[in-house]
Computed example of a mutant assay.
Amino acid sequence: MAAVSPLAGQGSVLRALVVVIDADLDNTSYAPEPLRQCFGLTDTEARVAALLAAGLDLTEIADRLHVARSTIRTHLQHLFDKTNTSRQAELAVLAARLAYTPSGANTSSK
């Protein structure tokens, strides 16, 4: 998406403000593997936690994983139990701290 807004210019100088927003641009990512290893999560539980850390809500996570929202709620309860957390916000912060990887970082093991 791009938006162009004209700005007041002086004399014959034309000025404009151009804002470009790339909805597909992802400046950060959250790797599920550190979460899986740290808390003994299943692959799916780790993916749910990583998506929660990325700011997705339960409906968005369900859509992304092609499952019902109730399935995500079940995974969420398992995540609470395994991480000793009790709120989504608390789990999201924990997951973000453990799973954050700067964009473009190599997360593979050597």
Rank of each mutant, 00 (worst) to 15 (best):
M1C: 04
S5C: 12
S5V: 14
G9P: 00
Q10V: 15
G11I: 09
S12E: 05
V13W: 02
L14D: 06
A16M: 09
L17Y: 15
V18W: 13
V19R: 11
V20A: 14
V20W: 15
I21Q: 02
A23Y: 03
L25Y: 10
N27I: 08
T28G: 06
Y30P: 00
Y30H: 03
A31S: 08
E33H: 09
E33G: 11
P34V: 13
Q37C: 05
Q37W: 08
F39L: 09
F39N: 03
G40I: 05
G40H: 10
L41F: 09
L41N: 05
D43E: 06
T44M: 09
T44W: 01
A46P: 00
A46I: 01
V48K: 02
V48Y: 02
A49F: 00
A49C: 02
A50H: 01
A53N: 00
A54Y: 01
A54N: 00
A54F: 01
L56P: 03
L56N: 06
D57R: 04
L58M: 14
L58D: 05
D63R: 05
R64I: 02
V67T: 04
V67R: 10
S70D: 11
T71P: 00
T71C: 00
R73N: 11
R73M: 05
R73P: 03
T74L: 14
H75I: 10
L76K: 13
Q77A: 14
H78D: 14
H78A: 12
L79P: 04
F80D: 01
D81M: 15
K82M: 07
T83F: 03
N84M: 13
T85E: 12
R87S: 07
Q88W: 10
Q88C: 15
Q88A: 14
A89L: 11
A89C: 08
A92W: 04
A92R: 07
V93Y: 10
A95V: 07
A96G: 04
A96N: 07
A96F: 07
A96W: 11
R97E: 13
L98W: 08
L98S: 12
A99S: 15
T101L: 14
T101M: 12
P102H: 15
S103E: 09
G104S: 02
G104L: 10
G104K: 02
A105F: 08
N106W: 10
N106Y: 10
T107R: 11
T107N: 07
T107F: 07
S108M: 14
S109V: 15
S109R: 15
K110N: 13
